[in-house]
Nucleic acid binder design. Structure first.
Lengths: 302, 302
DNA sequence: TTATGCAGTGCGTTTATTGCAGCGTTTGAT
DNA sequence: ATCAAACGCTGCAATAAACGCACTGCATAA
């Protein structure tokens, strides 16, 4: 929408942290951009950016202003989609910030299923740890978040919560393979490979380890669950994952896994949510519904 | 705010019902305005106005669009006021659509009291019957509505409700003067002067008259309560009004009045409200608080 | 039928926006 | 201490956008 260029530019500057760098990605000169900002500040009567040596930063007036224009921008997208709906074409874009666990199996299947019905809808899928996912909602770079054990902030509005019991993952020829359930201490007899600190799985494990006298033999830490899972396939190591991130054994027999007794490690919760008080674009709202239904079918709703 | 000119223009066209007349009040030529509209329609991919012989009218896409841009426009005012607040100056504008009853005494006193504290805040006060008041909220031409017995629509969000017992008004030398309470039939023995149909007082009276065998001798109908009240001062006629619209007898002894038994005429309700889901400008929200407090002190809250 | 009021178009003019070159400043590395 | 790099900002000319005027075609009301 043409009339929104100025505010889109300002949004970009706020994100980029400097006028010059924002100008570059917007493919205009810094002078033009600079003058747009000065003009807006002049109209408002107050500056919205602090000028620092290395760029600019929003001041408190700017925070208010940018918060507002981001609302405007994403509302306009919703309105456009709504109008397009009237004309019969179902279009839109859904942007999702999510934990690693949903990336390998759950989300691809969900998106594929949704796009069968609504081929006009495009998707953006971004890996964010539980803190960053909520930041993405706040600055409108994501419409939805699917996060495990999030650090709940006030701006996060839960759409659905499902239980996720921690599972140990190992190779099919591992001594633990075939067991129905495991105690945490069973796992700790083997080398373990763990996700790094910011992730929910690690968080849960730490809770469990506090009540355990056994010290884990952590041979590998990684921020990639993909890597952890594959590594656990080799060596006699044990990795950890939540059900939604586990492969379907009917189609993939390279792994074995078993749930860990909840006496040892508490049940985790996977949250689906959005920014509080934001009206989502139709496409995002419908996709959220579809995801919520799928989750509710498969897992225990809290 | 400069970047909003296009949408302000479109809002104006939607209100005016024709491009030419809107152009006139905007002090530009119709061609320029016309081209702005065509440009927006081009961007949206669909027309937002139906072209009629006598002007233009919003189509359904236009309804969605205009609803949205009106939100944007009034939100921006709120943001500006919020930013001005940061800079120390308390500014803003409050626009009120209200029933006649609150015009003569209540609202002037409330606004005066409020402006003592916040002299930077300006007011717009518009007389609207109970249907039109809510329309004013919907199209953002009013921030607040104070209406007696409104036709509740879905978009109306009640902030406070207070009881209002119907009173008969007459001159101090009227035979009815001095009575503590009246039955409706007492009043009907005299000529009555009534507000016209769209008003809440008339509505209540009609309800009362349905259960009465007496037919009223309606000598005057008027849409001005001021006129009705003054006329009742002369002749031996009886008029009707709710407490909030009655003068303070300590300062004005040109009138006498008495409540009408609730067996005959049900208690009416005065609503204070706003448009649902709208975040009011700070000034409007604070004034609404102040009004609500004053009403709650004086009348029974429902 | 004519007269009126309307939205839309072509074209020259005015106004706003942009890009270029350059200034003064701060910061981090040499 | 010095130098290079990155930053926001300004003067001026070039460019693009918005505008007003004159005019067209169309639909209703008189």
């Amino acid at each position: 929408m043409r009339y929104m260029t100025t505010i889109r530019f300002i949004d970009a500057v706020a994100r980029a942290g400097s006028i010059r760098s924002a100008a570059e990605e917007l493919a205009i000169t810094s002078t033009a951009l600079n003058r747009r900002i000065l003009a807006v500040e002049d109209e408002l009567g107050v500056p919205i950016f602090e000028r620092l040596a290395r760029g600019v930063r929003l001041n408190s007036a700017g925070e208010i202003f940018v918060q507002h224009i981001r609302d405007q921008i994403s509302d306009m997208e919703r309105v456009r989609a709504q109008i397009a709906d009237l004309a019969g074409e179902r279009r839109g874009h859904v942007s999702i910030a999510c934990s690693q666990a949903v990336l390998p199996f759950f989300l691809p299947a969900q998106i594929e299923r949704y796009r069968v019905e609504h081929s006009g809808v495009t998707f953006g899928v971004f890996l964010r740890d539980r803190a960053a996912a909520e930041a993405s909602l706040a600055d409108h770079s994501a419409d939805l978040a699917i996060v495990f054990e999030p650090i709940r902030m006030a701006e996060f509005q839960t759409l659905l919560r499902v239980r996720q019991q921690l599972h140990a993952v190992f190779s099919p020829d591992h001594p633990l393979a075939g067991r129905e359930t495991l105690r945490l201490r069973d796992c700790l007899e083997y080398p373990v490979v763990l996700p790094t600190a910011p992730y929910g799985v690690r968080h849960l494990l730490e809770l469990g380890l506090q009540n355990s006298s056994h010290a884990p033999k952590v041979v590998i830490e990684s921020d990639s669950f993909e890597f952890l899972r594959r590594y656990a396939g080799s060596e006699k190591a044990v990795s950890f994952q939540i059900p939604i991130g586990l492969p379907d054994l009917r189609h993939d027999n390279r792994y074995a896994f078993a749930p860990i007794d909840t006496q040892d490690v508490p049940l985790g919760i996977l949250y689906t949510g959005q920014l509080r008080n934001r009206t989502l674009p139709v496409a995002a709202a419908k996709f959220a519904d579809s995801v919520a239904t799928a989750l509710a079918e498969r897992f225990d709703v809290v």
